[in-house]
Amino acid sequence: MKARIAAVAAIAGTLLAADAAEAYTVYVSNEKDNTISVIDTATMTVTKTFKVGRRPRGLAVTPDGKYIVVCASDDHRIEAWDTTDYKLARTLPSGPDPELFAFSPDGKLMYVANEDDNLVTVVDMETNKKVTEIPVGVEPEGMAVSPDGKTVINTSETTNMIHFIDAATQKITDNVLVDARPRFAEFSSDGAKLWTSAEVGGTVTVIDPKTKQVLKRIEFSVPGLNKEAIQPVGIRITKNGKRVFVALGPANRVAVINGDTYEVEKYLLVGQRVWQLAFTPDEKMLFSTNGASGDVSVIDVDALRVTKSIKVGRLPWGVWVKPE
């Protein structure tokens, strides 16, 4: 009798625990495996792995949650996979060697960085057609769209610039020079700040998108690590703008930065060569792709602790959580 009560309690406990945190679906692109891993956050396990085009890197779920969109860089195309049955729904014209992309807030347009061709390609999601190509610097990589949809950002790795593109005219309006090899750009949710990472420079530069002035250049220092090992890549900002997480590449750490004071508050030890980051919609968890160790680290955002690592494919690159 006692045993049965204990069992019931245990089941109830499990149900409660499951209730407490929403179950989300996380997608991870594995660059050297040509696959996407699907993680269920209820069980924190990989529930499915499916084959996609060659060298999958940048990945995102469309704002309506219907498709996983992934750059198959070596196949020079972007693929849209159905989130219900994981079948290839369609391919999008992307221009050569697509690496990263961003959607307009209404989900109608997709801006793609073509790393090998010094272009940003604009694709109409409804008609599946290329709208235009915008010439930018050498090796375009990071893409971001301002929350109001009016400004498109591209970072070019060899030109070392952040390009501001007017979404209406589809022309570059401003260029801001940053440290070597800028890889990623992310707007704060109010659009007041643009955070950018420079991989080789080892810094993060925060820019005022209105004045194009540099608000702050943030350097990192991890005891016992030489400066070269610190290579910032992926950036995510909480919706309230208070906390910013930066993946530091071969430093194997995610930096936690105060969004107001720009102070680095903490370094979280994750897997090896941490690359990109993604929040769950409730911002309780942050997932990081760790390229060299082939896993994903799960960060508890409130406690600022790494709670779990989940084995995925070879060289995990992009990560995205399906919206609710």
Partner: peptide
């Protein structure tokens, strides 16, 4: 610092 595709400046 020169960026030259070797992972470090």
């Amino acid at each position: 610092e020169l960026a030259a595709f070797k992972g470090v400046g």
